[in-house]
């Protein structure tokens, strides 16, 4: 019987700059179905945090309800966590960020949690450009309630029971671009080589970073005829570019070729090195990103990789000029500026 992971780890496991091994970013053993794409995404988050030298106690992970929203238990066991109400993760994340903007916020949601019950929350958190990473583990079905079609199921996709979905899907990534999200990417749970640098870039991005990850439900939506199965996604995947994340501390030696490659400098000086760029696509240009999405869809392809990035937009804290330090660190002198200030204020209202 193995409900617990053995305590032993590989003795030669490398350590990151903080002296942590990848195992230090793990959570408890997953209780999701064997082979669930969500577990791969959890592993990618673990890998990204390990490689970014993130201090686990400087991360908060938040989620709503659903298979996806169970996953924060399975990664970053030493970080803060909040498993909130169905579809309400963005509100809780906003509140948490208001109270302490110094933490890194990772929100995990699913297609039901974001595209159905939480759609209102989803659009408004984008509109406000909250500084967080928002990952949707998108399997096109309600796995927790035995696999009914969700709002992101493609029209014509066949369920395990054999019924064909008659409704148009909500394309969360296109919607995020349309709503002005400042970092939008799409990926596949079975492609860690792409997913890990995307998560790293999203964590370094200052502002709202959205990653829609197609994550096959092995139990209810991995059948022939489904458009979210491992085989279908692998056959129809098309990448905007290959992506390399170069932390700002590392010396950059490679020269890039402006024709087929580009480099994006993130706020902290880290670099995104994109190679094999898709035609007519510029990651800094919203219109080209939206049109690349439309074109791919019309060809029946799933466009993955970085879709759009804007490093110059103001995030929520900058917009509302919130106080930089966590609220629990404000003492009386910060909160009570004294009677002279009050007098000035009163005078100004006369």
């Amino acid at each position: 019987m193995s409900f617990q992971r053995p305590l032993f780890r590989h003795p030669n496991l490398p350590k990151n700059e903080l002296g942590f091994a990848k195992a230090d970013y793990e959570g408890t053993l997953s209780t999701l179905c064997a082979g669930c794409g969500h577990d791969s995404i959890s592993a990618a988050i673990v890998q990204a945090c390990y490689e970014l030298n993130v201090e686990p106690h400087r991360v908060a992970k938040l989620s709503g309800i659903g298979c996806s929203s169970k996953t924060p238990t399975y990664f970053l066991g030493n970080s803060h966590g909040f498993n909130s109400v169905h579809g309400r993760m963005p509100s809780v994340a906003t509140g948490a960020s208001m109270a302490n903007r110094t933490l890194k916020y990772i929100g995990v949601s699913g297609d039901g949690d974001s595209a159905s019950i939480g759609m209102g929350q989803f659009v408004h958190v984008i509109r406000r450009n909250l500084n967080m990473v928002y990952i949707v583990m998108n399997n096109g079905c309600y796995g927790l309630t035995k696999g009914q079609d969700s709002a992101t199921a493609d029209v014509g996709s066949k369920s395990k029971a054999g019924s064909i979905n008659p409704f148009q899907p909500i394309d969360l990534a296109s919607m995020a671009i349309e709503l002005g999200a400042t970092f939008v990417a799409q990926s596949f749970s079975g492609d860690k080589r792409q997913l890990v640098p995307l998560i790293k870039a999203a964590m370094d991005h200052r502002g709202f970073a959205f990653i829609n990850v197609i994550s096959p439900c092995v139990t209810f939506n991995n059948n022939v005829g489904s458009t979210k199965s491992y085989d279908y996604v692998r056959d129809h995947i098309e990448a905007t570019a290959t992506i390399d994340f170069v932390p700002h501390a590392e010396e950059i030696t490679a020269q890039y070729d402006p024709g087929t490659e580009t480099e994006i400098t993130l706020h902290d000086g880290s670099l995104l090195h994109l190679k094999k760029l898709a035609n007519d696509w510029d990651p800094m240009d919203r219109i080209s990103a939206a049109s690349a999405m439309q074109k791919a869809r019309s060809k029946g392809q799933i466009l993955t990789g970085l879709l759009y990035i804007n490093e110059d937009a103001k995030n929520l804290h900058e917009t509302i000029e919130s106080v930089p330090s966590p609220l629990n660190q404000l003492d009386e002198t910060d909160l009570c500026p004294g009677s002279a200030v009050l007098d000035d204020l009163m005078m100004s209202l006369r």
Partner: peptide, 15 residues
């Protein structure tokens, strides 16, 4: 094998 990576992710000793 459907290459879902589940085994690779779960292996405690990264084998």
């Amino acid at each position: 094998c459907i290459e879902c990576d589940a085994c690779m992710d779960v292996c405690p000793t990264s084998c």
